[in-house]
Simulated scan of single mutants.
Amino acid sequence: MIDITKNIIPIPPTATALGFFDGLHLGHMKVVEECFRHDGLSPAMFTFHSDTALPKREKIENLLTNEMKLEKLAEAGVKYIYSPDFNSVCNYTARDFIEKILVSIMNAKVVVCGFDFRLGAGGGSNADELKEMCREYGIEVVIIPPFSLDGCVVHSTAIKNLIKSGEIAKANKLLGYDFSIEGKVIEGNRIGRTIGSPTINQLFPDNIVMPRFGVYKSVTYLDGRVMPSVTNVGVKPTVGYKNSPLAETHIMDYDGDLYGRTLRVSLLDFIRPERRFESVDELKNQLDKDKITAKQ
Rank of each mutant, 00 (worst) to 15 (best):
V78Y: 02
L130H: 07
Y82V: 03
C113D: 08
L64E: 06
G188E: 04
Y259V: 10
N91C: 02
D39T: 10
N7M: 09
G122L: 13
S266N: 06
S279Y: 09
G196M: 12
F277I: 08
P228T: 09
Y137D: 07
K289A: 10
K217W: 10
N87L: 02
G256F: 08
G260W: 08
I143Q: 11
D269M: 12
G260D: 10
V141K: 00
F115P: 04
F147A: 12
K284Q: 14
D22Q: 05
I9T: 15
S83E: 09
E167W: 02
I271D: 07
S218Y: 07
D257H: 11
I186G: 09
I251W: 10
A108N: 09
F20Y: 13
S50M: 05
M29Y: 08
L268F: 12
E282Q: 14
G27L: 12
L41W: 01
D22N: 14
K160L: 02
I251R: 08
L119Y: 14
Y177V: 02
E248Q: 09
F147R: 07
E67P: 00
A294C: 08
V31C: 04
F21R: 05
T293C: 03
Y82I: 03
F21D: 06
I181Y: 07
I2G: 05
L174P: 04
G40D: 03
E278N: 15
Q202T: 13
K289M: 07
M252L: 15
K217T: 15
K170S: 14
L268P: 04
S279V: 07
E75L: 12
S180T: 09
D39P: 00
P10I: 11
F270M: 13
D128M: 14
Y82C: 02
E75M: 09
G183V: 01
R190G: 04
I143G: 10
F270W: 13
A76F: 10
E58F: 04
D39K: 12
V111I: 13
N66I: 00
A44G: 03
N161Q: 14
I60Q: 03
D51F: 05
R276D: 05
D223I: 06
E282C: 06
H155Q: 13
K173S: 11
Y80N: 01
L258R: 12
A94P: 06
V31Q: 02
D22T: 04
P198Y: 04
A169H: 05
I81D: 01
L162A: 10
L149T: 00
R95G: 00
L246Q: 05
L175K: 07
V112W: 10
P43E: 02
F213I: 00
D116C: 09
F21Q: 04
V103W: 03
I168F: 09
G183D: 07
S83P: 00
L18V: 03
I4D: 08
G123D: 10
F117W: 13
D290E: 11
D257R: 11
K217Q: 14
V219E: 12
V235W: 03
I271Q: 06
E182G: 03
E71M: 04
A15E: 05
A158D: 01
T5E: 01
D257Y: 12
G214I: 11
A17M: 07
K100A: 05
S165A: 14
I208Q: 10
S197W: 06
E99A: 13
E182L: 06
D288W: 00
D257N: 15
R261Y: 07
A247S: 15
A76R: 14
F48S: 04
H28M: 05
I159Q: 00
S266D: 12
G192D: 07
S88F: 02
K30F: 06
G23D: 03
